[in-house]
Amino acid sequence: MNLFLLLLLLILIFNAIAVVLTKNLLATCLIFMAQSTVMVLVWILLESPDLAITEAAVGAGVSSLLMFITLKKIHVIDEEAGKGGGNHNE
């Protein structure tokens, strides 16, 4: 179990560095979501299931959604998606 926790903590550090170094904003949000998901497992291993539930709902769910919608509003997501889909007329 200790080894598993160590692995999770290493993933956390890796994710934290990756969030800063990634240029693509959508990918940054996804890594942030992954960070929260790993944190859920860490909270469970640290025996605080209350925090794990809240982290899963708020950290991985709602806050990432708000970031996605902000990226959409400032036209970051559609620029990248528009290259493939060609769905926008601006």
Binding site: P49, D50, A52, I53, T54, A57, V58, G61, V62, L65
Partner: peptide
């Protein structure tokens, strides 16, 4: 485990 905050966040999601 659980409570108002986490349950409310799940329902909102």
């Amino acid at each position: 485990p659980g409570g108002g905050f986490s349950g409310g966040a799940i329902m909102g999601a």
